[in-house]
Design a protein around this nucleic acid. Structure first.
Lengths: 234, 234
DNA sequence: TCATGATCGAGAACAGTGTTCTTGTCAAGT
DNA sequence: ACTTGACAAGAACACTGTTCTCGATCATGA
């Protein structure tokens, strides 16, 4: 796929990228609902039918953009995680780096954020392809937690006592994302995930209007509280 | 608006309601993107142009449905709050009633939930009309908290110490929704709001696939934790 | 080298959409 | 009784996604 053997393959790959770039620009400006196959064809100065050599339908093009958004967000989060991983001592700072990068990305790409975490648009997006960047994103968020646990700096929750049904319900994420951590911590991590997605979505989708005047102050405070709730205080 | 003086006004009001009912059914089945003015006209056996006597555009019809969704959700939450208000002793049960009703409503009306808390669809929905049910919903959620404070059963947060920028940022909600409560509690309430919207959206929008097997277990645990974090433990 | 087969771009066409305008009809108010 | 207004319908316009056909172009095997 990334090895153009012939000249034809190379120009095809190039044009595919060009179509995606134009479509991404339209998406960023007008949103997913306004993404028109004919309008990107017009801007590329080609016939609408010609686009069908590269994408089998409008939904197919949109699915490619959705996958792009997932990967762009995951890249952004992983970069922030890697950059923050160098400061071993500042646990709070390391913890807050990835959430802040997610918020910054969302504010920079509101429509793409909507594609990832907003209401699902078509019948369905490609699920098998988005699970990989989704897992990368989640792993980047919790990477400071697993690092803290490895270094014995993660405070254990007092008296877990969680019902077994909860433990069974979240076993997949406990095993694949946070192995060796108590159920209470895994549950807290999922709550943290919900809080992050919720607080960013509320801001990006305009729900803080006349309610929260400076969203960044609330966001920073929230991230700090979440880290403390997770047991990251030393 | 609700006082039909002439027979003509009455039949007009009736037909308006009929259009909304059909459109709401289409919305519930196929989502907002698939809502077609012509298809509701077909089902009503009238010409597409006739609908323009009742709604000035497709966006206008959709805006009415959005407002409907806001009000339906707020009604549901207020009913749950009123029903739970009778049990003065069971503070935890009273606290969890409204969040549970919100989740149930969201699972029953996934597309409508998307209209309220998902990515905003058109240029913009009517903002001035939705702020009222939005405030009713928020008030229903926090009603057990203000009741607990009135009865001296709200644990105060230990050592507030929140930055002034945060206090200034969330002053509107502190004054209008939670008067007399410390900044730390108001901030926690906003975090709770974000967590609720986030955890319900993640489930309704299908993000728990293969991750959280029994969302209700995680949801109940989360609501309980949120109540404790807010200071509702006696 | 050249012929064959695959790939490509363009154009026309179809069904569907939101929206506007015009025309006729019917009920209400003076 | 007549006028005025609201109403429903039909035709039309400008869009949209999608399919089909038809040359033109390129890659490759004989």
């Amino acid at each position: 796929m990334s090895a153009p053997r012939s000249a034809r393959d190379r120009v095809r790959q190039e044009l595919t990228r060009e179509i995606l770039d134009v479509a991404r620009a339209h998406l960023a400006r007008d949103g997913a609902g306004a993404l028109s196959l004919r309008s990107v064809a017009r801007q590329l100065e080609m016939a609408p039918s010609a686009l069908y050599r590269y994408f089998s339908s409008r939904d197919d093009l949109l699915s490619a953009l959705i996958l792009d958004a997932y990967e762009s967000l995951a890249d952004c989060a992983e970069e922030a995680a890697d950059a923050a991983a160098e400061h071993h001592d500042d646990l709070a700072g390391r913890w807050s780096a990835v959430p802040r990068s997610m918020r910054a990305w969302a504010l920079d790409h509101p429509h793409e954020w909507g594609l990832v975490f907003g209401s699902p648009v078509p019948g369905y997006q490609a699920p098998q392809a988005t699970v990989v960047p989704y897992a990368r994103l989640a792993a980047a968020v919790v990477s400071p937690v697993v690092a803290a646990q490895r270094h014995g700096r993660l405070r254990q929750p007092p008296v877990p006592e969680r019902p077994d049904t909860l433990a069974a319900s979240i076993r997949p994420v406990a095993e694949e994302l946070l192995p060796g951590l108590p159920t209470a911590t895994v549950a807290r991590a999922l709550q943290t995930w919900a809080t992050l997605i919720g607080i960013i979505s509320l801001e990006v989708f305009g729900h803080w209007r006349n309610t929260v005047l400076e969203p960044s102050a609330l966001f920073d405070q929230t991230v700090a509280d979440l880290g403390r709730d997770l047991g990251l205080d030393r």
